[in-house]
Every structure is written in structure tokens, then in C-alpha cells.
Computed example of a mutant assay.
Amino acid sequence: MTSPKRVDPNLPRLETGPETHPSLPERAAVRRSFDQAADSYDEHAVLQREVCNRLLERLDLTTIEPRVILDLAAGTGQASGALNRKYRKARVFPVDLSEQMLQRARRQGGWWKKLPAICADVTHLPIADDSVDLVFSSLGLQWVDDLDRCFREIRRVLKPQGLFLFTTFGPDTLKELRAAWQAVDERSHVNVFADMHDIGDGLVRAGLAEPVMEVEHFTLTYETADELMRDIKRIGAHNVTADRPRGLTGPKKMARFREAYEQFRQEDRLPATYEVVYGTVWAPRARNI
């Protein structure tokens, strides 16, 4: 059985990558954010758990029997554990940029001791060509600063007819939060999320075949805008764009932001919309690129 190369159980810390475009996630900030949120993530990642479960259910619609599985952006290991239980004969490799997230998962003990976790950037996977049957990624692609390169890496490691199954956030995500901040200033306060059609085009450019894309909307509600922002911070999902404001936001701006968000209040609750994009795509039968 072919398996990924250079799996390091000691989870080495990566070097900081090059600077990204100002509107895209800054790689070092993403890593730092999730490192800091590792201990609070599981308690607050309600939507993330639900979306992951729905993506796992889609595997029941396939006949794939993978022997090698990558769980990209594995976080604290929800999907890795489910994949390990579902495919008993497979080797599951959790991959995440955040060392602290993977260490948090390891502290669960049990089956995690058997999984060789990889601390790596999804645009530079330390994995052999044509060695993976299934790449699974739930709500991780939105943190990637170069989706084209990420998709090329996934195409490279997938075996012929290997499956890439994923979810990510679309541009309607946190639209209320974005609108409230836009009423305050022109700075970048909310992460930017790729459109479903742009994601599909990127998959095709990478040489992956016949992508099927779907969208589902979720709405979480909060008593206050501050509660929403605390929730986002506790799962490591706050603004990590390169041109985000640095330092603390002044009290006057915060007051204007809270007032602007109030326009969205319904039934005494403030909504936060999440657009979830589901994608299914296969590696072709033979490499032609």
C-alpha cells in the first residue's frame, strides 16, 4: 500500500511563508489565530461540527473504499476520528497548519495515538505524488492564501480517480458583520470568501474532473454584536486578512459598529449568515497535465 511520505509525528513548526495579497488570509496570522483558539475551539465550533457531519454523510453516497486519506485542516480531529471509524482498513493522516490544534487533538488519546498527524501548509503538502485515495476538508479552504496552488497540490497527491470532498465558506458569509463595519470605515474587518464559481474554475484549472458544487445557508443568532465577535475569536476565525486593522478599535468606532449592526435585528436577536459551499471532484483516470 502506498502511503504519504515524510510524516513527522513531532509536528515541526513551519517557517512563515511569503506575504499574501492584502485581501487574502495572511498565513502566519491564520496559524497564530488557531494556535491561540485551540483550547476553546471545540466548545464554540457549533456550526463547524454540523457542517462536518453533513459532509461526512455525503461519503455514504459514494462507493469509494480508500486506503489512504488526508483530512486537510483537521483542527481538533472531528473528521479524522469519523473517517478512522468509517474506513477501518484505511490510514488517516490529519493535516493542519496549527500545531496547537493538532496537539489538542492528540490529548484526546485513544485512536489519535495511532494517527500520524502532519503540521503542514496545504499549498506545500509533504506527500508523495499519486498516493492518496481521499482528500477530505471541512471548512478549511477559506484560510488558504493561494487556492490555485492548493488545488494543484491536491491534484498531485490524489491517485487516478481519487476523490476530493470539501466544504468552504462563500461570499455571503458574515454579510451582516461586513455591512456593519462598512458603515464605520473602509478598512478590512471581515475575511473575504471565494465565490462558488471561482472555486469550481480553480478546480478545473488544477486538472480535477467534473466538479459538483452546491450551496447551503445557515444563520446563527446572538443577543449582541460583541457576543458574535467573541464567538468568532474563540474558534480562531476572526479577521486574518493582510490589510486588517492593527491594534485596538476605539470606543467611538465600536459604538458606531454596534449601532450599524442593530439594523439587522429580528425577534430580538442579531443574525449571522454563513454561506457553506459543498464540493465533490475527482482526479481523472490518468494524469494528463
Rank of each mutant, 00 (worst) to 15 (best):
residue 19 E to T: 10
residue 21 H to S: 13
residue 21 H to E: 14
residue 23 S to L: 14
residue 24 L to N: 05
residue 24 L to E: 05
residue 25 P to G: 09
residue 26 E to R: 14
residue 27 R to S: 12
residue 27 R to D: 00
residue 29 A to I: 01
residue 29 A to M: 11
residue 30 V to R: 07
residue 31 R to H: 04
residue 31 R to Y: 06
residue 31 R to S: 11
residue 32 R to C: 01
residue 32 R to P: 00
residue 33 S to R: 10
residue 33 S to H: 05
residue 35 D to F: 03
residue 41 Y to A: 05
residue 41 Y to T: 01
residue 42 D to W: 01
residue 42 D to K: 03
residue 44 H to F: 14
residue 44 H to A: 12
residue 45 A to E: 03
residue 45 A to R: 04
residue 46 V to E: 09
residue 48 Q to K: 08
residue 48 Q to W: 07
residue 49 R to P: 00
residue 50 E to Y: 01
residue 50 E to A: 14
residue 51 V to G: 04
residue 52 C to A: 15
residue 53 N to Y: 05
residue 53 N to P: 00
residue 54 R to D: 01
residue 54 R to W: 00
residue 55 L to H: 04
residue 55 L to M: 06
residue 56 L to F: 11
residue 58 R to I: 07
residue 58 R to K: 14
residue 58 R to P: 03
residue 59 L to W: 02
residue 59 L to G: 03
residue 59 L to A: 08
residue 60 D to F: 05
residue 60 D to N: 14
residue 60 D to L: 12
residue 60 D to C: 09
residue 61 L to T: 03
residue 62 T to E: 13
residue 62 T to W: 01
residue 63 T to E: 13
residue 64 I to R: 13
residue 64 I to L: 15
residue 64 I to C: 08
residue 65 E to G: 12
residue 65 E to L: 13
residue 66 P to W: 06
residue 67 R to S: 14
residue 67 R to A: 13
residue 67 R to L: 12
residue 67 R to K: 12
residue 68 V to L: 03
residue 70 L to E: 05
residue 71 D to N: 09
residue 72 L to D: 07
residue 72 L to Q: 07
residue 72 L to P: 03
residue 72 L to H: 07
residue 73 A to V: 00
residue 73 A to T: 01
residue 74 A to H: 03
residue 74 A to K: 02
residue 76 T to L: 09
residue 76 T to N: 08
residue 76 T to A: 13
residue 77 G to K: 03
residue 77 G to L: 06
residue 77 G to Q: 05
residue 77 G to T: 02
residue 77 G to A: 09
residue 78 Q to W: 00
residue 79 A to F: 02
residue 80 S to F: 05
residue 80 S to G: 12
residue 81 G to V: 07
residue 81 G to P: 00
residue 83 L to M: 10
residue 85 R to S: 13
residue 86 K to F: 02
residue 87 Y to K: 09
residue 89 K to E: 15
residue 90 A to L: 05
residue 90 A to P: 05
residue 91 R to P: 02
residue 92 V to K: 05
residue 93 F to A: 07
residue 94 P to S: 10
residue 94 P to T: 10
residue 94 P to L: 12
residue 95 V to K: 11
residue 98 S to H: 08
residue 98 S to R: 06
residue 99 E to H: 13
residue 99 E to G: 15
residue 100 Q to I: 02
residue 101 M to R: 08
residue 101 M to F: 08
residue 103 Q to N: 14
residue 103 Q to F: 07
residue 103 Q to I: 13
residue 103 Q to A: 13
residue 104 R to T: 12
residue 105 A to K: 06
residue 107 R to K: 15
residue 109 G to E: 10
residue 109 G to I: 04
residue 110 G to R: 14
residue 112 W to N: 11
residue 113 K to Y: 09
residue 114 K to C: 08
residue 115 L to S: 10
residue 115 L to P: 00
residue 116 P to N: 11
residue 117 A to N: 06
residue 118 I to T: 03
residue 118 I to K: 00
residue 119 C to H: 04
